[in-house]
């Protein structure tokens, strides 16, 4: 539970970043990559991954299409849209501002 909470609020940012830098990915790949890159610190629950993805999709920040995966199955891959890139910039700036603020408090309090 604690690990999931750590992700609260930042999952859309992570997903957008991932899609912006590593191109079209399906849900499972995004989950494993986040886990891999964070050395298992951040674990993405399926229960929050897919609703988050679908919300981003409905907002028009990412779009989905069906492709054939390496194993020959139909997989739904997502890619970031132009609107998504703008949103990514906003979210990134906000994240940086928050972490900077938190850092300041940790340092000076």
């Amino acid at each position: 539970m604690a690990r999931q909470d750590a992700l609260q609020g930042s999952l859309p940012l992570l997903l957008l970043t991932l899609l912006a830098r590593r191109g079209p990915l399906h849900g499972y790949a995004m989950a494993t990559q986040i886990e891999g890159m964070s050395d298992e610190t951040l674990r993405v629950e399926e229960g929050s991954l897919y609703p988050a993805l679908h919300r981003l999709e409905e907002a028009g920040w990412i779009k989905a299409r069906w492709t054939t995966s390496g194993t020959g199955r139909r997989a739904r891959v997502y890619e970031i849209t132009a609107a998504g890139r703008t949103q990514l910039d906003t979210e990134e700036a906000r994240w940086k501002a928050i972490t900077a603020a938190v850092g300041k408090i940790l340092k000076h309090a």
Binding site: H26, G27, Y28, A31, T32, E46, Y50, S69, T71, R73, R74, A75, R76
Partner: peptide, 17 residues
């Protein structure tokens, strides 16, 4: 149906791994 397929894909991939 699309949702189910997407989730099933995820389940199968993880199981395989």
């Amino acid at each position: 149906r699309e949702l189910d397929e997407e989730l099933q894909f995820h389940i199968d991939e993880r199981t395989r791994e």
